[in-house]
Amino acid sequence: MTNSSTCLDPDIAASALRLRQMVLAMAVQAGGAHLTPAYSIIDLLTVIYARHLNLHPGSETDPDRDRLVLSKGHGCAALYAILAERGFFPVRDLKGFCSAGSKLGGHPDMHKIPGVEASTGSLGHGFCSAIGMALAAKLQGRSARTFAILGDGECQEGSIWEGAMAAAQLELGNLLAIVDANGLQGMGRVENINTLEPLCDKWSSFGWDTMEIDGHDHAAIDAAITRAFNVTGRPTVLIARTIKGKGVSYMEGEAIWHYRLPNETELEQACAQLGIDDLNSVLT
């Protein structure tokens, strides 16, 4: 599954695989989830949390912490999995995903979940809030950096481009936007619905420093993030070319899996591909 990736660190590769296992278990337990939008950002999140984000259990309110905003809030299963894995709350809490009494809903709630900076779910909001966070850090003279993860379909929202203009004007070198460019949106291929290409050129023309990488290549992700924060005086966007549903062959690149849950046969196949022997034990 991570064969195409440059191996940065075996622990990170193992972590990414484990997150995919957890997300599948969560989705099955909940009886539904945005599985594939979570799978396309897992490698990005794994590298960010393991090697770049200055945020740890206990530092959630530290004014100097780095902020990560999942602007494409529907990919939250991946975020919950990594927050649990990194100790922000117990892994067993993931069993409650989308259930009555759980803090983990189908979109993230900043008031319930440690480590979540903004309650997202409606597209085009989190990115703009992240710009506010980056501006605040700049005005306060803090070293805190802000990461925002956007969907490519989300870039059809006008507010994204309002924000893109403002962040460049405000010279927010402490801001990194990562576009999960998986090429798919709810009802089909982005290019067939409201194309965004040339996406790099668009961001570049808005005054951003741009990089384009394979969003599943851990070494490339790592290098790009390091480079991004060495750029001063303007924000950086990483166009991460990803595969929606990455990790489960029949889900990869198929729009229908934005919503669908595997049937019994499909589930067996997914477990086999993700190295899961016992799905019930994944969240323990």
């Binding site: 903004a118 909001h125 990115f127 703009c128 992240a130 710009i131 506010g132 980056a134 605040a136 850090a137």
Partner: peptide, 10 residues
Amino acid sequence: AMAAGMAGSG
């Protein structure tokens, strides 16, 4: 939305 983000930072 930016104002919301700034409020979160004090």
